[in-house]
Computed example of a mutant assay.
Amino acid sequence: MATVFTRIITGELPGRFVYRDDTVAAFLSIGPVAWGHTLVVPIQEVDRWTEADPALWAHLTEVSRLIGQAMVKVTGAARAGLLIAGFEVPHLHIHVFGADDMSGYTLRAIDVSETEMDRATTELRAALRELGAGEYVPA
Score class of each variant (00 low, 15 high):
residue 112 V to F: 13
residue 18 V to M: 04
residue 19 Y to I: 00
residue 78 A to E: 13
residue 137 V to W: 02
residue 41 V to G: 03
residue 103 S to H: 11
residue 123 E to P: 12
residue 21 D to Q: 08
residue 53 D to S: 12
residue 48 R to M: 14
residue 19 Y to E: 00
residue 87 F to L: 09
residue 136 Y to I: 06
residue 24 V to M: 07
residue 42 P to S: 02
residue 15 G to R: 03
residue 50 T to C: 14
residue 46 V to I: 04
residue 90 P to L: 00
residue 104 G to K: 01
residue 64 S to C: 00
residue 35 W to I: 07
residue 36 G to D: 06
residue 36 G to Y: 08
residue 90 P to T: 02
residue 76 G to P: 11
residue 91 H to A: 05
residue 135 E to K: 15
residue 46 V to C: 02
residue 78 A to Q: 11
residue 77 A to W: 08
residue 24 V to R: 02
residue 37 H to T: 00
residue 115 T to N: 14
residue 11 G to R: 01
residue 43 I to W: 05
residue 54 P to T: 10
residue 35 W to K: 05
residue 72 V to M: 15
residue 18 V to S: 03
residue 123 E to K: 10
residue 123 E to M: 07
residue 64 S to M: 02
residue 39 L to A: 03
residue 94 I to V: 15
residue 105 Y to N: 12
residue 80 A to E: 01
residue 93 H to E: 03
residue 64 S to Q: 05
residue 31 G to D: 13
residue 11 G to F: 03
residue 117 M to F: 14
residue 66 L to K: 08
residue 49 W to H: 14
residue 101 D to T: 13
residue 22 D to I: 06
residue 26 A to F: 04
residue 82 L to F: 10
residue 44 Q to L: 08
residue 49 W to I: 15
residue 119 R to S: 08
residue 47 D to F: 14
residue 57 W to G: 14
residue 43 I to E: 12
residue 50 T to I: 15
residue 134 G to Y: 08
residue 48 R to A: 14
residue 105 Y to K: 11
residue 66 L to V: 09
residue 126 A to H: 09
residue 105 Y to F: 15
residue 127 A to M: 01
residue 45 E to M: 13
residue 120 A to D: 08
residue 129 R to L: 03
residue 124 L to V: 03
residue 131 L to D: 04
residue 110 I to F: 09
residue 121 T to V: 05
residue 64 S to A: 14
residue 44 Q to W: 02
residue 48 R to K: 11
residue 98 G to I: 10
residue 133 A to I: 08
residue 42 P to G: 04
residue 93 H to C: 07
residue 133 A to T: 10
residue 63 V to G: 00
residue 97 F to R: 10
residue 71 M to V: 09
residue 104 G to V: 02
residue 94 I to N: 01
residue 111 D to K: 15
residue 12 E to I: 01
residue 16 R to M: 05
residue 41 V to S: 02
residue 91 H to M: 04
residue 21 D to M: 05
residue 77 A to C: 10
residue 70 A to L: 08
residue 25 A to D: 01
residue 130 E to C: 13
residue 27 F to D: 00
residue 116 E to R: 15
residue 114 E to A: 11
residue 50 T to R: 15
residue 37 H to Q: 05
residue 28 L to I: 09
residue 134 G to P: 01
residue 62 E to D: 06
residue 110 I to D: 07
residue 89 V to D: 06
residue 29 S to N: 12
residue 100 D to E: 11
residue 87 F to C: 01
residue 130 E to R: 13
residue 48 R to Q: 12
residue 121 T to H: 08
residue 114 E to I: 13
residue 99 A to M: 06
residue 19 Y to C: 02
residue 36 G to H: 07
residue 32 P to Q: 07
residue 105 Y to P: 00
residue 16 R to C: 01
residue 123 E to Y: 06
